[in-house]
Amino acid sequence: MNTTAIIAAIAVLGGLGIVFGALISVTDKVFAVQVDERVAKVRENVAGANCGACGYPGCDAFSEAVVKGEAPVTGCTPGGAKSAEALAGIMGVVSESMEPSVARIRCQGGCGISVDRYEYTGIKSCAHAASLAGGPKVCPSACYGLGDCQKVCQFDAISFENGLCVIDPEKCTACGMCVAQCPNSLIKLLPKAASVTVRCRNTQPPKVAMPVCTYSCIACKRCEKACEYDAIHVNNFLAEIDPAKCTRCEACVAVCPKKCITVSA
């Protein structure tokens, strides 16, 4: 056996390893990129879902933007108040109070509740259904239950019950991705505390709105009269609650004849 050949090979390769290793450590020092250590800290304190709700392409880009001062410390909605506080601490700024929000679906018209216009047999996409002859429901602002919102939710917060979108407030981080997906703009980010909501978006005149759904708002204004705090108003044949004025007394819920005002968790 030729032992010299083996020793020579080990020596040459080992030598090369030492030379290149030295070269790498020198280059690493000479060409080192200065990274703001705050970026890494910020990155640790955001939600890390890469959801894009902040408007930046991913959490890394958002972290850099925060350190540069381009993005607000409250920008990470999934991270919520906790993340905002941590980021404010790192950046040395005072964070504005960040009220936790949640996405709420403003429709109760599931299968057999909102009247069908036609039997939809097409692809599972609300956008497609909505483009066909005014949508599969007679109500122009009904939930079609085909899951465009569910498709974009990264937190598994959206499910469907009887053809109606249900958002789990515990899982929802208010990233807002689902809001833009709904062809009928039924999902809105509302303060988590605002539990009393009008769950209807039908702005048709009462005579038209009445038969289209069990839970359609018919602009009877009973809620408006029942409210002692001037928090609910009927505009454009639809009741709307101002969450800032609402005290959650639930007087409107009790008088609504169509049960379209509900108390959510």
Partner: peptide, 13 residues
């Protein structure tokens, strides 16, 4: 496979 309705919807979006 339902292909064309998917492309139509994608184009609309």
């Amino acid at each position: 496979q339902q292909l064309t309705p998917v492309f139509k919807t994608a184009k609309d979006i």
